[in-house]
Measured scan of single mutants.
Amino acid sequence: AVSDRLIGRKGVVMEAISPQNSGLVKVDGETWRATSGTVLDVGEEVSVKAIEGVKLVVEKLE
């Protein structure tokens, strides 16, 4: 699937994400809805860990 190529890629949070609410991330110039187990603020760099349906699962870049 086209989304599989995104796993491991870096992105930037465009709309804040929390465990309760999905947000938006931009990866390779495309905007995706994303979820995370932690709070991520706009502008934070993330990496794509998995894909669930049409949402990316991301975590903060260390």
Rank of each mutant, 00 (worst) to 15 (best):
A1W: 07
A1Y: 05
A1I: 13
A1L: 07
A1D: 13
A1H: 10
A1T: 15
V2E: 15
V2Y: 03
V2P: 15
V2Q: 11
V2M: 11
V2N: 11
V2I: 15
S3T: 14
S3R: 06
S3E: 10
S3N: 12
S3A: 15
S3P: 11
D4T: 07
D4Y: 03
D4F: 04
D4E: 10
D4G: 06
R5C: 06
R5N: 13
R5K: 09
R5I: 07
R5T: 13
R5P: 06
R5M: 13
R5S: 09
R5V: 08
R5L: 14
L6R: 03
L6F: 07
L6I: 07
L6T: 03
L6E: 02
L6C: 03
L6D: 02
I7L: 10
I7N: 03
I7R: 04
I7G: 02
I7D: 02
G8F: 03
G8E: 03
G8H: 04
G8I: 02
R9F: 08
R9V: 08
R9K: 12
R9L: 13
R9Y: 09
R9E: 08
R9T: 09
K10M: 15
K10L: 10
K10R: 11
G11C: 04
G11E: 01
G11Y: 01
G11D: 01
V12C: 05
V12G: 02
V12H: 08
V12S: 12
V12A: 06
V12T: 09
V12I: 10
V12D: 06
V12W: 12
V12K: 08
V13T: 05
V13E: 01
V13Y: 00
V13N: 00
M14Y: 12
M14K: 09
M14R: 06
M14F: 08
M14S: 10
M14W: 08
E15L: 13
E15C: 05
E15R: 13
E15G: 08
E15A: 15
E15N: 09
E15T: 14
E15W: 09
A16C: 06
A16S: 13
A16Y: 10
A16K: 14
A16W: 08
A16N: 09
I17K: 01
I17E: 02
I17C: 04
I17A: 02
I17P: 02
I17H: 02
S18C: 05
S18Q: 07
S18N: 14
S18Y: 14
S18I: 13
S18H: 12
S18P: 04
P19T: 08
P19S: 08
P19V: 06
P19L: 07
Q20A: 12
Q20G: 14
Q20S: 15
Q20K: 08
Q20L: 15
Q20C: 06
Q20R: 07
N21L: 15
N21S: 14
N21G: 14
N21M: 06
N21F: 14
N21P: 02
N21I: 14
S22Q: 09
S22C: 05
S22D: 14
S22H: 13
S22Y: 13
S22V: 12
S22G: 10
S22W: 09
S22E: 15
G23S: 01
G23L: 03
G23K: 01
G23H: 01
L24V: 10
L24G: 04
L24M: 11
L24D: 03
L24E: 06
V25L: 02
V25S: 01
V25F: 01
V25R: 00
V25Q: 00
V25I: 07
V25T: 03
V25N: 01
K26I: 14
K26Y: 08
K26Q: 11
K26P: 01
V27P: 00
V27L: 08
V27A: 03
V27Q: 01
V27F: 03
V27K: 01
V27S: 02
V27T: 03
D28R: 06
D28H: 07
D28M: 09
G29S: 10
G29E: 10
G29R: 09
G29H: 14
G29W: 07
E30W: 04
E30I: 10
E30V: 14
E30C: 06
E30A: 12
E30L: 13
E30K: 09
T31F: 13
T31H: 11
T31E: 12
T31W: 09
T31N: 10
W32G: 01
W32T: 02
W32E: 02
W32I: 04
W32H: 09
W32D: 01
R33H: 09
R33L: 14
R33A: 10
R33F: 14
R33C: 05
R33G: 11
R33Q: 14
A34K: 00
A34H: 01
A34C: 04
A34I: 01
A34N: 01
A34L: 01
A34W: 01
A34E: 00
T35V: 13
T35I: 12
T35D: 09
T35P: 00
T35K: 14
T35W: 08
S36E: 01
S36P: 02
S36D: 01
S36C: 05
S36R: 01
S36K: 01
G37Q: 15
G37T: 12
G37H: 15
G37A: 12
G37W: 05
G37S: 09
T38N: 10
T38D: 11
T38W: 10
T38C: 05
T38I: 08
T38K: 10
T38P: 02
T38R: 15
V39Q: 13
V39F: 15
V39H: 14
V39G: 08
V39M: 10
V39T: 14
V39S: 14
V39K: 13
L40G: 01
L40A: 04
L40K: 02
L40P: 01
L40S: 02
D41S: 13
D41V: 11
D41H: 11
D41Q: 15
D41C: 06
D41I: 10
D41R: 15
D41K: 15
D41N: 09
V42I: 08
V42N: 06
V42S: 09
V42Y: 06
G43E: 07
G43Q: 07
G43A: 06
G43F: 08
G43K: 09
G43V: 02
E44G: 04
E44S: 10
E44Q: 15
E44D: 12
E44R: 05
E44L: 10
E44I: 13
E45C: 06
E45Y: 14
E45D: 10
E45K: 09
E45F: 09
E45I: 12
V46L: 02
V46C: 05
V46K: 00
V46E: 00
V46Q: 00
V46M: 03
V46H: 01
V46T: 02
S47T: 13
S47Y: 12
S47W: 11
S47Q: 10
S47F: 09
S47E: 12
S47R: 15
S47G: 07
V48Y: 00
V48G: 01
V48S: 01
V48D: 00
V48P: 01
V48M: 02
K49T: 11
K49R: 14
K49G: 04
K49V: 15
K49A: 06
A50I: 03
A50S: 10
A50C: 05
A50N: 07
A50K: 10
A50L: 04
I51A: 05
I51V: 10
I51G: 03
I51S: 04
I51N: 04
E52Q: 15
E52I: 13
E52L: 13
E52K: 07
E52T: 12
E52R: 11
E52G: 04
G53E: 05
G53C: 04
G53K: 04
G53S: 05
G53N: 13
V54Y: 13
V54C: 05
V54H: 15
V54E: 09
V54L: 08
K55Q: 14
K55G: 12
K55H: 15
K55C: 06
K55A: 10
K55M: 11
K55D: 10
K55T: 14
K55Y: 14
L56C: 04
L56D: 01
L56Y: 03
L56A: 03
L56I: 11
L56P: 01
L56F: 03
L56T: 02
L56K: 00
V57A: 05
V57S: 05
V57T: 05
V57F: 11
V57Q: 05
V57W: 10
V57H: 08
V58T: 02
V58C: 04
V58Q: 00
V58Y: 00
V58K: 00
E59I: 15
E59G: 09
E59M: 12
E59L: 06
E59C: 04
E59N: 06
E59A: 13
K60P: 08
K60E: 04
K60V: 06
K60L: 08
K60T: 06
K60F: 04
K60G: 07
L61D: 09
L61T: 12
L61G: 06
L61N: 11
E62D: 11
E62R: 12
E62M: 13
E62P: 09
E62W: 12
E62V: 12
E62Y: 15
